[in-house]
């Protein structure tokens, strides 16, 4: 695997007596979709939370080799720097949109850092200077681009909470993409989608992979995982039990045992 963008080494996460993640190492290559799968409680979301800074790992290293800006040691960075500087964007297992705000506003909040970069502590925005207006217009253009991609341009001025479930899932991905990430982490994006919506999601993710950034994916829907992943990491009870290409994983007896029960092992 050439060119790893993300390296996770000997990651451990302990909650009191519970070892949620036990010495897990894996890496994700630039331009790949890397899927993390495993039964419920395997530690997938915990790994995500370590990666995005919501948890401080009890041990191990997480290093992002971003194409412009050198290595970031994620395990020591606060959450908003991981998103803002290391450029890792994420979505959540249970949708976390700003439900009361409009679709467009959701996408603009995601570009908060970009708009306020030269903002003189908000003074430029208060005085509505030309430079601020330009930054805002650019942000709106970017938002419009993503709204067209997910086919929600007609609902731009509607409250995000009023959208149908599938559209909210897509909007959350679009919002994450509006931060211009180098790595996109998706926590069960296909949960609750019907087969047609899942297919559209898979197409969108392949598009993102080709045009924008690497993707790290937690997913239970195996039809999606097997179709789009380049590389799969399997966790069970906090340990990595397998990794490899989809075809290898499908045939791996340990993985089958973890999913179907211990007797086969």
């Amino acid at each position: 695997m050439a060119d790893p963008i993300l390296r996770v080494q000997n990651l451990a996460m302990r909650f009191g007596g519970l070892l949620a993640i036990d010495d897990v190492s894996f890496s994700a290559a630039a331009g790949d979709i890397t899927a993390i799968i495993g039964p419920n409680g395997a530690g997938k979301t915990t790994a995500f939370n370590c990666l995005t800074g919501f948890y401080k790992p009890s041990g191990g290293e997480i290093i992002l080799q971003s194409p412009n800006g050198g290595p970031h040691t994620l395990h020591t960075m606060p959450v908003h720097h991981i998103a803002g500087r290391a450029k890792i964007a994420r979505t959540f297992q249970n949708i976390r949109l700003f439900a009361g705000m409009t679709v467009l506003e959701n996408l603009l909040v995601a570009q908060h850092g970009a708009i306020t970069k030269n903002g003189m502590l908000g003074l430029a925005a208060l005085l509505n200077t030309r430079r601020h207006r330009a930054a805002e217009c650019q942000a709106i253009e970017h938002a419009r681009h993503w709204l067209q991609r997910i086919d929600l341009i007609g609902s731009a001025d509607q409250p995000a909470g009023s959208l149908p479930y599938g559209a909210q899932r897509l909007l959350e991905i679009a919002r994450a993409m509006c931060t211009r990430p180098t790595l996109l982490c998706l926590d069960e994006p296909a949960a609750g989608l019907n087969p047609r919506e899942s297919a559209a999601l898979a197409a969108l993710l392949l598009d993102i992979k080709r045009q924008h950034c690497a993707i790290l994916l937690i997913e239970h829907d195996m039809s999606v995982v097997m179709r789009i992943s380049d590389h799969i990491v399997v966790l069970d009870h906090g340990r990595k039990i397998a990794q490899g290409r989809p075809a290898d994983i499908r045939a791996n007896p340990q993985v089958i045992a973890a999913y179907l029960g211990e007797e086969a092992a």
């Binding site: 959450v79 991981i82 949109l97 705000m101 909040v109 931060t179």
Partner: peptide
């Protein structure tokens, strides 16, 4: 609306 989502967006 959502503090956690805010943090995740940088």
């Amino acid at each position: 609306e959502d503090e956690i989502a805010c943090r995740a967006l940088g």
